[in-house]
Design a protein around this nucleic acid. Sequence first.
DNA 1: AGAATAACCTGTCTGC
DNA 2: TGCAGACAGGTTATTC
Length: 323
Amino acid sequence: MPELPEVESVRRGLSAWLTGATITRAQVLDARILGTTSARNVPAERVVSFERALEGVRIVSVERRGKYMWMPLAGDGLRGDSVAGGSETAEVDEWALAMHLGMSGQARIHEAEDQLHPHTRAVFDVAGPAGVGQLRFVDQRIFGHLGVERLVPGVAGVGATGTAGERRLVAESASGAGLDPFEGGFSVPVVARAFARKNVAMKTALLDQRVVSGVGNIYADEALFEAGVHPAARASRLRISRIERVLEAARDVMARALEVGGTSFDALYVNVNGESGYFERSLQVYGREGQPCVRCSTPITRVVLGGRSTHVCVRCQKPQRLR
DNA sequence: AGAATAACCTGTCTGC
DNA sequence: TGCAGACAGGTTATTC
């Protein structure tokens, strides 16, 4: 559900509230939120070590790359949870609380006495410059994830600036993600050349978080429409300038979405205060199957590509624009 | 290498 | 009213 603009809206809300705050208590209500897609069975001791690792720790900042979010930690007595192998102690500033919203995750700021939403999976009592309250992780489908993770150097891949030694530190689960279009070192021409080496559909390339992170199903469709490129067009067959246009469109459409708080179809995507974003009304193709194209009035078509719903105007997005 | 599929979950909506 | 089936903004593993 949440893509880069939605995650960034959440990050900003969390940053304003949590920077410099201390976690006084951590409670996991559903252990599955600590698991991963492939490892759902979370032993009880991992829940305990996760909770203990966070108690008394200070949140230094709230960071994001693509859809991955994490909070670097500082404080005495932090111990890694079993993600990193258990009881070893480590330098405090090597750790972060990682958070991925998945399809239905929400990070919400509440007062302790507020009623608990039924899908609340974890609760963190916090006290800091902005006051005392609770950070609650609510996630209907439990595709989201929480973890205490090491900070490690991010990808050295396309678009990264500087040498390997200067790579930005990211939470371990985000270490495979490419730079997102809003990061300083992101380079459209460099990423476009990486796309051109891939013999895959343009939409598939956009959704591959290892190359460029942050683009999800909605903004992929929107960017391809804006650039006039068919989602199934092979990246390797397109002119570099066309690929660059898609990447610029992705950055532009996500920037515009961010300005209005992201895209919400329902109460599943909300910011830290439970408020919806307004970009749904600006969508040109996503979710508009059968409705007239905003440019040429041809009905929008829905096809399945890479297992994902894909919306296209077959007149504005011709498949054959080859090198 | 890349494509397709399933899996992880819960909920909503549609059609019969 | 009930029920089956499709579908949902993401990620990962497996199989062909």
